[in-house]
Structures are given as structure tokens and as C-alpha cells.
């Protein structure tokens, strides 16, 4: 760590200029909840640390006509307690309550969490279920990418060394749309053994499922969608029988990987249980 340089950036332009110059030698420091432990354990040894924690332009929660826009530096705690989030996307407040401790939520940021790409992260499956998009900015311009395409492997994302994650753009829930996040962890607010983000939209007249996304975290290198399970539900009325069938399908289609939180065999059992629980809660739960 003794050879590491440190820059505190004041603006997004300063960040992207630095990234352009130093590329993958640099590492962005936001809330420090993932990076600082890695530095302390000498697992990350960047030549330059770009501290973006004071870049005011990256801290916001705004509502537009159809979306909520959230700055990447928004802390977990802000997301958990923000009135706009609670009104329009209560799934995120619920998800945050299950993420680590208040102390960590007060420091850790949404952008930092996503870019760290821990396969057991809670934010990603929830945002995937909501169909969120990420705005990445570099010195040469900006691009947008769905959360679903953002994760590439264990702790690896599609972000380029010259880019910074600036904004998360989340479509507002349609009427009759429900989204929930549930998770299982050994101590209640722990690293997930499994996490499931669910979005379901039912038809007003027929009560059949028009749209569904079942996004499962902590079962492999990246959060994934249980597409065969979705297919069981899509176009049908959600019943105990379809829920049970969807659970079985999810269990068949996902091959979980063992980690320190749970073995692959255990996760396999949980996939079925939690897909069922998620569907039950999302299809009978409160509006939105």
C-alpha cells in the first residue's frame, strides 16, 4: 500500500480524465466497504486510488415521468430511507434492510456494490428484477447497459477501465406490477446463501401473468434469471400448482456453485423453496 497514490476527485470529469490516463492501474474508491478490506488484505494493490466520495453530481435520487434515477454514490441507507423509493420502489427499501448492518449501509454505496460484483450481492438481483439500466461514463462519452448484461464473472463486470458507473435508471412499476426481494442467510442480515428478486405483472381482466422476471443471486458467478421457471408462470394464472412447478423448473435449470455460505446441494434445495416463496409473496403481496 505504501506505493499507492491517492487523488480525491471533485467532479465526474476529473474522475474520467484520471481513468483515461491511468486505466486499470487506478481503482475507484466510493464508500470503501468492499475495496478497503481488499486493500488491507493486500488482495488489491492499485497504483492509484481515485476517491469519488465527494463528487456531488453522483449523489441524487430523482423521479422522472417513467423512471427513478439514482446516482451511483447514493448510500444503501439513503436508498432504504428515501421517501421516493419507499413510495415507488419499496422492494429496494426492503432489500436494503436485509443488507449488512446500518453502519455499513451508511457508508457503502449502490455503485460500489454493483461494481464490486460480489456474486452474493443483494442489490443486483433486485435491480435485475426491476429491469434497471446502468449509465457508464468515460472521457469519450456515455453508454447505457442493462443490469442483466453488466455482470460477467465472479467479481467481474462489463465496465471498461476508463469508465465510471454514474447512474442507475429504474423503470417505475406499472399498475398491478409487484416486485419483491427475499433472501436467506444464516444470521438474518448476512451474506446471502440465496437471494431472489422477483417482478410480476398481472393482466387486469384475466389475472394471468403478463410479465415475469425471476432473478437469483448467490448461486453462481453472476446473478441469473430462472427463465424456464418464468416460462411456467408467463401467460398463466398463478396458482399453488404453477408455483410448485416453477420451483421445480428453477431447481432443474440452475446449477449452483458451492461457496462459504452454503454447499451447491443446499443451494439447490433453496432454489426451489425460494422461487416458490418469492412467487407466492409477489403474486399475493401488496400492490407494487
Amino acid at each position: 500500500m505504501k506505493d499507492m497514490r491517492y487523488i480525491r476527485a471533485a467532479s465526474v470529469t476529473e474522475v474520467t480524465d484520471c481513468l483515461k490516463k491511468y486505466g486499470d492501474k487506478a481503482k475507484i474508491l466510493a464508500g470503501g466497504q468492499s475495496l478497503v478490506p481488499l486493500l488491507r488484505q493486500r488482495l488489491a494493490r492499485p497504483g492509484l486510488l481515485i476517491d469519488i466520495s465527494r463528487v456531488a453530481d453522483l449523489k441524487f435520487i430523482r423521479k422522472t415521468k417513467n423512471t427513478l434515477k439514482i446516482g451511483a454514490l447514493t448510500t444503501h441507507r439513503q436508498l432504504e430511507t428515501d421517501p421516493l423509493i419507499r413510495e415507488h420502489l419499496p422492494i429496494l427499501a426492503d432489500m436494503e434492510k436485509q443488507l449488512a448492518s446500518v453502519q455499513i449501509r451508511n457508508l457503502g454505496t449502490l455503485g460500489g456494490n454493483l461494481c464490486h460484483a460480489d456474486p452474493a450481492g443483494d442489490v443486483a438481483p433486485a435491480l435485475m428484477a426491476l429491469g434497471a439500466k446502468l449509465k457508464l461514463i468515460s472521457a469519450t462519452g456515455a453508454r447505457t447497459m442493462s443490469v442483466e448484461n453488466f455482470f460477467k464473472d465472479f467479481f467481474e463486470t462489463a465496465i471498461r477501465p476508463d469508465e465510471v458507473l454514474a447512474e442507475i435508471d429504474i423503470p417505475l412499476l406499472p399498475d398491478l406490477g409487484h416486485a419483491i426481494y427475499i433472501k436467506h442467510s444464516s444470521r438474518g442480515v448476512d451474506t446471502a446463501i440465496i437471494g431472489v428478486g422477483t417482478f410480476i405483472l398481472k393482466d387486469h381482466d384475466t389475472d394471468t401473468c403478463k410479465e415475469i422476471r425471476l432473478c437469483v443471486g448467490a448461486v453462481g458467478p453472476v446473478p441469473i434469471r430462472a427463465k424456464n421457471a418464468e416460462a411456467v408462470i408467463r401467460g398463466k394464472v398463478v396458482t399453488g400448482k404453477t408455483i410448485a412447478e416453477a420451483g421445480k423448473k428453477a431447481r432443474e435449470e440452475i446449477s449452483p456453485v458451492s461457496d462459504l455460505q452454503g454447499s451447491a446441494e443446499y443451494k439447490k434445495e433453496l432454489i426451489e423453496v425460494f422461487i416458490q416463496r418469492a412467487l407466492k409473496a409477489a403474486s399475493s403481496g401488496r400492490r407494487k
Binding site: S186, G188, D190, L260
Partner: peptide, 13 residues
């Protein structure tokens, strides 16, 4: 060998 993966009870437990 760390207190994330080695699980001691939290206050809420």
C-alpha cells in the same frame, strides 16, 4: 479467517 465468513452472532440474533 475473517469475521465475514466466520460467523459470530450479531446483536439482532
Amino acid at each position: 479467517p475473517n469475521l465475514i465468513d466466520y460467523k459470530m452472532p450479531f446483536a439482532i440474533n
